[in-house]
Design a protein around this nucleic acid. Structure first.
Lengths: 237, 237
DNA sequence: CGGCACGTTGATCAATGTCAAGCAGTGTGG
DNA sequence: CCACACTGCTTGACATTGATCAACGTGCCG
């Protein structure tokens, strides 16, 4: 979008401070900067496809990337959402496997591609980088186990409320009169794919929640008219 | 059970060759051996509980350990099964969090407890150990994503057949007349907890599969009378 | 204007959960 | 040794959830 952001410098990149590269200095930082490629993506555009050779890793500058898995039957789900400061494609690269998942921009996004040779060099050069990748993997594992458990034990309503709150934490705000508000950044279909349900189920649970006066819906905008009750429902049971 | 196996020596331990400690030598190996504690567990006995302080890691010598998560509503599921050569509790230890899951022996099992200080020393001493933990975490993440996707997209029947085949790979054998056979090592309830369904659903799908002549059931023993059809069903769609 | 993707809603159906009953095996105490 | 309690497993009846199929409205874009 913005031409100025296309030529990016790792040394001054604020996002880098939350990535695996946060501990790099001088030479290593220059190596990173010289070999990375910055890429802009529109919604629906692909970072990489399930089955592709993993030739490096991708740092998300800004935006929202969905990791998608399609099964043999053609059913598609979103395994995880990743945003600014996350790295995607690293796991397949580190185990030298083809990409397990596809990565797709859900909103306009900027990612930096780091070639595999650079990753290998930097990991070999500085032990901190390896440690950061370990911590990142551990965090992804913990999150995936949480999602796994929730999706296996909860009903559609609970799972949906959880996703709403997750988005509220990321991009929610208070409107003019102090009401908690959220602009959903993704389609109904994508919400459904996060929960392993059909889009119609999303419509129905939204209607149900509106009928109960817990929130108001206007297309992608959600107004939480009774956040307390929602929080209680999610946390209690 | 067997007294002889209680005093164990890491240097000669065959299981160690598939753990994070496989690359250790001489001094490090002695440190490991001197500080580890070997523990025998009967079915139902607990290695550690969800919420416990993670004071070290546990290597599974033999047996079958289930990682269980109980949610606020009291529903319990099995997140993952671990057996000989796996390490459990390492993820919580490495991120210095309380245990995310409980670990419980599902059959008679032997595990070695490695105190946290030993783990930290060995990781600091030899970079290979850290790399092994990274690879282990990556493998667990990949497996959890697979399970996640399957559980979100497949029905009870498909998930159950998948679990049967998984057990067949681990402990299956051909009987006297060459028929694929399996002694299920766990309860119906535990099978259900692996899939996030009710035990009754396991009974029903077992009945269905018997009625279709795909297998025969005698308590815990499963005879696969038509393995080809089962494999086709799982792989195709 | 026409086509297309997204979203909503209704009707219906299939899958799974829930509840209750009964059976088999096992261990315990009288 | 028997009576009893207890747990695991199965089955049936029924309720509930969510999927499926179809129709329709809206907004966007060529």
């Amino acid at each position: 979008m913005n031409k100025a952001t296309t030529s990016h410098n790792c040394s001054t990149c604020l996002t880098r401070r939350t990535t695996e590269w946060r501990d790099l200095e001088s030479d290593d930082l220059q190596t990173l900067d010289k070999t990375k490629k910055t890429i802009h993506l529109n919604p629906g555009e692909i970072v990489f496809n399930q089955g592709d050779k993993a030739s490096g890793v991708y740092c998300i500058q800004n935006g929202l990337i969905g990791l998608r898995r399609v099964d043999e039957g053609g059913k598609s789900i979103l395994i995880r959402l990743c945003s600014s400061g996350n790295t995607v494609g690293y796991n397949s690269f580190l185990v030298k496997s083809p990409q397990y998942n596809s990565a797709e921009a859900l909103i306009p996004s900027t990612v930096c591609f780091i070639p595999g040779s650079t990753v290998s060099n930097l990991v070999a050069n500085s032990p901190k980088v390896g440690e950061r990748f370990l911590q990142h993997t551990l965090a992804d594992l913990a999150e995936t186990e949480d999602d796994y458990a929730r999706n296996l034990t909860k009903n559609t309503r609970h799972k949906f409320l959880h996703i709403l709150l997750m988005f509220y934490e990321r991009v929610g705000y208070k409107d003019a009169v102090g009401l908690s508000t959220l602009e959903l950044p993704i389609l109904r279909r994508e919400l459904a794919e996060l929960m392993g349900v059909q889009p119609e189920s999303i419509s129905r649970v939204l209607r149900e929640l509106q009928d109960e006066q817990l929130l108001k819906v206007d297309a992608k905008k959600i107004l939480f008219t009774d956040m307390d009750t929602i929080l209680e429902e999610i946390c209690a049971y």
